[in-house]
């Protein structure tokens, strides 16, 4: 299952809060994501798409149901197992979350060093290459404060890609980008899927990029209400 289906979600339920304030946010979600595909999660605010993303990305503990990520069951996984799995993932956040004290190159290096690559030169070469891929070869020494919103997001993309992740989880990665940059980023993710088999799951409201999706999953009130592959049918 894990070879062709790196993500398999079965009967997933999730609650927030405790006691009387406890409220169910996800209801019996079932989802299987194919290797190398670009899957977009859509839905209105509060529909549960980000919760599903964080559960699949082992950023939250699975309370009920099953999430199988690259052959590993996340329900009941301990912290060390989650940490080890996360090193095989790439995350792109809406707010980019670059470290303000580190240059663009150093931020991307953080994505390499977590894998413990053999030597400093190899790490730097990988980071430089990733920054070149996102068109920031001339901004490597810049601190995030000196980069535009789009440039920061591209650094965040380079940081997510530099470790050659098996799966990329992205939350509104194009929100801070202009139309052209947004398309460039998503095309890059799509190309990675085709070339390396990297699987991407993305939460977005951006209609401009829907045509690149292999699959569009729509959630409402914590349930999957639509699951289509409109541009591939």
């Amino acid at each position: 299952m894990s070879e062709d289906t790196p993500i398999a979600v079965t009967g997933l339920n999730h609650w927030f809060g405790t006691g009387e304030a406890r409220k169910q946010a996800i209801f019996d979600v079932n989802l299987q994501v194919k290797r190398g595909s670009l899957t977009i999660l859509m839905g209105p605010s509060g529909s549960g798409k980000t919760t599903v993303l964080t559960l699949m990305g082992c950023l939250r503990d699975v309370q009920d149901g099953s999430v199988n990520l690259m052959g590993h069951e996340l329900n009941g996984a301990d912290r060390a197992q989650n940490e080890a799995l996360r090193r095989r993932l790439g995350f792109i956040f809406q707010a980019h979350n670059l470290h303000g004290s580190l240059t663009a190159l150093q931020n991307v290096l953080m994505g390499v060093q977590v894998h413990g690559l053999p030597d400093r030169q190899t790490q730097h070469d990988a980071a430089r290459h990733a920054l070149s891929l996102v068109g920031l070869a001339d901004r490597m020494g810049y601190l995030p404060a000196n980069l535009s919103g789009g440039q920061k997001q591209r650094v965040a993309v380079a940081r997510a890609l530099v470790g050659n992740p098996d799966v990329i989880f992205a939350d509104e990665p194009t929100a801070a980008l202009d139309s052209e940059s947004g398309m460039t980023v998503v095309k890059m993710l799509k190309k990675l899927g085709q070339m390396r088999g990297t699987t991407t799951v993305m939460v977005t409201h951006d209609d401009r990029i829907l045509e690149l999706a292999d699959r569009i999953v729509t959630l409402e009130d914590g349930r999957i209400v639509r699951d289509t592959a409109p541009y591939h049918e």
Binding site: L59, R87, L89, F93, A95, N97, V114
Partner: peptide
């Protein structure tokens, strides 16, 4: 001041 950066590194798989 750096909680969000640390959270990012945690997400990336950096251990405690």
């Amino acid at each position: 001041d750096h909680l969000s950066e640390y959270a990012t590194f945690k997400a990336m798989g950096y251990p405690q």
